[in-house]
Simulated assay, not measured.
Amino acid sequence: MKVEIWSDIMCPWCYIGKRRFEAAMEQFTDAGSVEIEWHSFQLDPTIESGHGDNLYSYLSKRKGVPYEQAVQMNNQVTALASTLGLTYNMEQAVVANSFDAHRLIQLAKKHQLGDAAEERLFKAYFTEGKDFSDPETLVAIGKEIGLPESELKELVNSQAFAPDVKRDIQEASALGINGVPFFVFDRKYGVSGAQASETFLEVLNKSVGEWKKSQPAGLEIIEGQTCGPDGDC
Rank of each mutant, 00 (worst) to 15 (best):
T78I: 02
Q225N: 15
Y56E: 05
N89S: 05
G146K: 02
Y189W: 03
Q159L: 14
A160R: 14
A96C: 01
L147G: 03
G218S: 01
K63N: 10
F126L: 06
E136L: 15
K212H: 03
G142Y: 08
S197P: 03
A174P: 12
G231H: 06
L107P: 00
G85Y: 02
Q69W: 06
V95F: 00
A116R: 15
Q69E: 15
T199I: 15
I221E: 11
F182H: 04
V165D: 06
L80T: 15
Q159I: 12
Q76A: 11
N97I: 09
T137Q: 13
G218I: 02
L147M: 02
E26M: 13
L121N: 04
K123F: 07
P229Y: 07
I141M: 12
L86K: 09
E119A: 14
G64A: 01
D186W: 01
G32P: 11
A108C: 02
A196Y: 12
T29M: 13
K63F: 09
P45I: 08
E149A: 11
C11F: 05
W38L: 08
G179W: 00
E144W: 07
L55Y: 05
H39S: 13
E220D: 15
A162Y: 10
K153A: 07
H39T: 06
L59Y: 10
V203L: 00
E118I: 15
E144F: 06
G224A: 15
S214A: 14
I9Y: 11
L84G: 01
H51Q: 14
S207N: 04
T83G: 01
D100N: 15
F183Q: 07
R187S: 15
E119T: 15
Y56K: 08
K63H: 10
D232A: 15
S33L: 15
R19Q: 02
N75M: 11
Q225C: 12
I47E: 13
W211R: 07
K110Q: 13
A174W: 05
D131K: 00
I36R: 07
S192Y: 03
Y15Q: 10
M25A: 06
E35V: 14
K130C: 10
G228F: 06
K18M: 03
F41P: 03
F126V: 09
Y56I: 06
A101P: 12
S173Y: 09
Y58R: 01
E154P: 11
S40L: 10
S192K: 03
Q42D: 04
R20V: 08
F200Q: 04
F161E: 02
